[in-house]
Design a protein around this nucleic acid. Structure first.
Length: 448
RNA sequence: GCCCCCAUCGUCUAGUGGCCCAGGAUGCCAGGUUCUCAGCCUGGAGACAGGGGUUCAAAUCCCCUUGGGGGUACCA
């Protein structure tokens, strides 16, 4: 393959945010270009005046950047190339290959005259695909508003911009014979076509808003790492051919070929994405992870300036193997950042509203108060000593303490948690639980 | 309706005629580690849509059926 002449494009229409299907198409084009050391260009197909918006364009550009899909040319905007399309359309009219037409509603357009015959092309992924051109109607090239239609603008631009490989969703397979007819009418050199499978929602139906998060920006806002999303998306419709799953971007570029792309549509799977994001989090250097968490926390409205030096790093270290997304981290660690913690009612019932818990926690309170250096080692020593002295298993003590301090029956290690929370808050919450939560019936949420 | 594409564990996939009574990952289940959960380790259940061919031999090739997806716009 002549790698030096590869030129591909991603050509979204700015009628909505970049969804994961579009992102995957962009990614495959990008990987293909980088693998072949070719050119990747971005073209905005804003020929639908009603539905195109600047916000959508901006969201698409932001999403591409966030994913790390940098383009070498563009973005070109089709709305700025109107004279070009007009000229090409008229050329076809003058050659008798297209004609002016007025529809029932009185709109005037230029329509392409389809020739009968068989259209066959060799798809890079599907192999030979054949259409009977006589079944395809004469289609509009230039709309009444002077804007080109998709099929027309696409061909004119791809030819004009020197696109060598058209990699796009297989929902475009049936557009291909029309486009080939146009290439032939103009005498343009035909590019290669590679139609990649669609990404379906988790239930196997076409991706839509009711599937929850479908846009790249939503995944960004929910605290996923861009490389994890890229890695996950790369594996939807493509595989390196071995058992490798977690791959760096350079690795993906090196291994990416269209030959290894699938024909079968793939269902999106959030659970596996979560797992993958967790893998990336685990493998991210702690300083970088802390910085990312910091950014996310600030956006979420947490006053990070008030946190002691190094505190967030300790938090990140403690939670690194425990969270899947930054949003998840925020959920898990919310009790650190508030004076009003939420108590899980079931946890309170199960671990605090029991006989002798008040006494036990009073002992714990005393032991913790007497711990001079409030760090995890000393806290552990104090409490281990206590359990030995009063003869109870450590878990009998840990759970009530956990609920009292975090409000939940699940948390990271209790000693590390107390150390991070600090002496003052820990003791305050413990005292509150002793006086207000143990062996009483109401009280689910209050100030501690 | 007509045209086109597709079909391996729930999901993502490996598999291009014998190496496959089908491998990996995720999820699920069980056990281990343990202050809970997560993580980690070990083990387990789990698929070639159905039917015909071709062949000494088929998940792999052909046909039909069924199922899914896409198109059939002066949307892209």
């Amino acid at each position: 393959m002549l790698s030096s002449h590869v030129k591909v494009r991603f050509a979204p229409s700015p009628t909505g945010y970049l969804h994961i299907g579009g992102a995957r198409t962009a990614l495959f084009n990008w990987l293909f270009a980088r693998h072949h050391k070719g050119v990747f260009l971005l073209r905005i197909e804003d020929t639908d005046q009603q539905r195109s918006t600047d916000d959508a364009t901006q969201a698409i550009l932001d999403s591409m950047k966030w994913l790390g899909l940098d383009w070498d040319e563009g973005p070109y905007f089709q709305s700025k190339r109107l004279p070009i399309y007009k000229e090409y359309a008229e050329r076809l009219v003058s050659q008798g290959k297209a004609f002016h037409d007025t529809d029932a509603e009185g709109r005037k357009a230029i329509r392409f005259k389809m020739q009968d015959g068989v259209t066959e092309f060799n798809d890079l992924i599907h192999g030979a695909i054949t259409f009977d051109a006589s079944l395809i109607e004469d289609f509009v090239l230039l709309k009444a508003d002077g804007f080109p239609t998709y099929n027309f603008a696409c061909v004119v631009d791809d030819a004009d911009m020197g696109i060598t490989h058209i990699i796009r969703g297989d929902d475009h397979i049936s557009n291909t014979p029309k486009q080939i007819a146009l290439y032939q009418a103009f005498g343009f050199k035909l590019p290669e076509f590679g139609h990649i499978p669609m990404i379906l929602g988790e239930d196997g139906s076409r991706l839509s808003k009711r599937h929850g998060a479908t846009s790249v920006t939503e995944y960004r806002d929910r605290g996923y790492m861009p490389h994890a999303l890229v890695n996950f998306l790369a594996l939807l419709g493509w595989s390196p051919g071995n058992d490798l799953e977690i791959m760096s971007v350079p690795e993906m570029i090196e291994k990416f070929t269209l030959k290894r792309a699938n024909k079968t549509s793939a269902q999106f799977n959030n659970t596996k994405l979560d797992w993958m994001n967790g893998q990336y989090i685990k493998n991210t250097p702690i300083e970088q992870l802390t910085a990312e968490a910091w950014k996310y926390f600030e956006k979420a409205g947490i006053d990070t300036k008030r946190l002691p030096e190094g505190w967030l790093l300790s938090l990140a270290r403690l939670y690194q193997e425990r969270f899947k997304t930054f949003h998840d981290l925020l959920n898990q660690t919310g009790f650190f950042f508030t004076d009003t913690i939420e108590y899980d009612a079931a946890a309170v019932d199960k671990f605090l509203k029991k006989e002798r818990i008040t006494d036990l926690l009073k002992e714990v309170h005393a032991a913790l108060s007497a711990t001079v250096i409030f760090d995890k080692n000393n806290l552990e020593n104090s409490l281990r000593d206590l359990t030995e002295k009063i003869g109870v298993g450590f878990s009998k003590l840990a759970q009530p303490l956990r609920v009292a301090v975090t409000g939940k029956s699940v948390s990271a290690g209790i000693f590390e948690t107390m150390e991070l929370l600090g002496r003052e808050k820990t003791l305050k919450r413990l005292a509150y639980a002793i006086h207000n939560l143990c062996e009483k019936t109401e009280t689910v949420k209050s100030v501690a």
